[in-house]
Design a binder for these strands. Structure first.
Length: 186
DNA sequence: GTCAAGATTAGT
DNA sequence: CTAATCTTGACG
C-alpha cells in the first residue's frame, strides 16, 4: 500500500502501477525517480529549504511542481518525514481512459509522445505550478493519485540510474516497468 | 543586482 | 547536436 511517509526510494516503487489523475486526464505510472534530502546532491532539497523547494520539506503526500528550462513542468510526490525534503519525480505514464482532452491540450505526432517524459505528462494532464501543494490522496483534488489495485510482479520492475543529471549520475534511483511502451528512456 | 545552470523537449 | 525560454539560487 502507498505510504508517502516512507523513504522516496520505497515510494518510487510503490507508485509504479498507480494512476495519476490531472485536470485533463489520467495515466498509469510506469516510471519514477527518487530524490533525497540533504544526502542527495541531485535533489532540489540538497541545500536546505528555499522558496522553490520548501514544499519538499512539507508533509508527505503533497504535490511538488517546478518549472524546468523555462518551459516544462515536472510533477513530484513529496515523501518521507516532514522536514526531510524527499520527493519522487513522475517520469512517464501510460494513458488511461479517454485521451481526447489530453491530445487537444498537447497535440503529438506519435501517440507515445503524449506521456513518455516528465514534462510531456504534465503538459498532457494539464498540471502546472498552480497545483503545487495539493493533497494527492484526495480524489477531490485537481491532481491526485489512485492507488494501484495490485503491485506489479518483481521481475517487471527495472532499477536504473536517473536521467538528465550532472551529479550523482551513478545513483540507481530510477524504476520503471519492463514491458511498458511508455517509459521515457532505457 | 547579476548571471550561469537547469530532475526537458522537439527539431536539424 | 542545438535552440528554446525563464526561474532559481549563489554571490556580492
Amino acid at each position: 500500500m502507498l505510504d508517502p511517509a516512507a523513504h522516496s526510494t520505497e515510494v518510487a516503487q510503490q507508485l509504479l502501477g498507480a494512476t495519476l489523475h490531472g485536470p485533463a486526464g489520467a495515466g498509469r505510472i510506469v516510471e519514477t525517480e527518487a530524490y533525497g534530502g540533504s544526502e542527495d546532491p541531485a535533489s532540489h532539497a540538497a541545500r536546505g529549504p528555499t522558496r522553490r523547494s520548501e514544499i519538499m520539506f512539507g508533509p508527505p503526500g503533497r504535490l511538488y511542481v517546478y518549472l524546468i528550462y523555462g518551459m516544462h513542468h515536472c510533477a513530484n510526490v513529496v515523501t518521507g518525514p516532514e522536514g526531510d525534503g524527499q520527493a519522487v519525480l513522475i517520469r512517464a505514464l501510460e494513458p488511461v481512459g479517454d485521451t481526447t482532452a489530453m491530445e487537444s491540450l498537447r497535440p503529438v505526432r506519435r501517440r507515445r509522445d503524449l506521456t513518455n517524459g516528465p514534462g510531456k505528462l504534465c503538459a498532457a494532464l494539464g498540471i502546472d505550478r498552480t497545483h503545487n501543494d495539493v493533497d494527492l490522496a484526495d480524489p477531490m483534488s485537481p491532481v491526485w493519485v489512485e492507488e494501484r489495485p495490485e503491485a506489479p510482479a518483481d521481475e517487471q520492475i527495472v532499477t536504473a540510474t536517473r536521467i538528465g543529471l550532472s551529479v550523482a549520475v551513478d545513483t540507481p534511483w530510477r524504476w520503471y516497468l519492463r514491458d511498458s511502451e511508455w517509459v521515457s528512456a532505457r
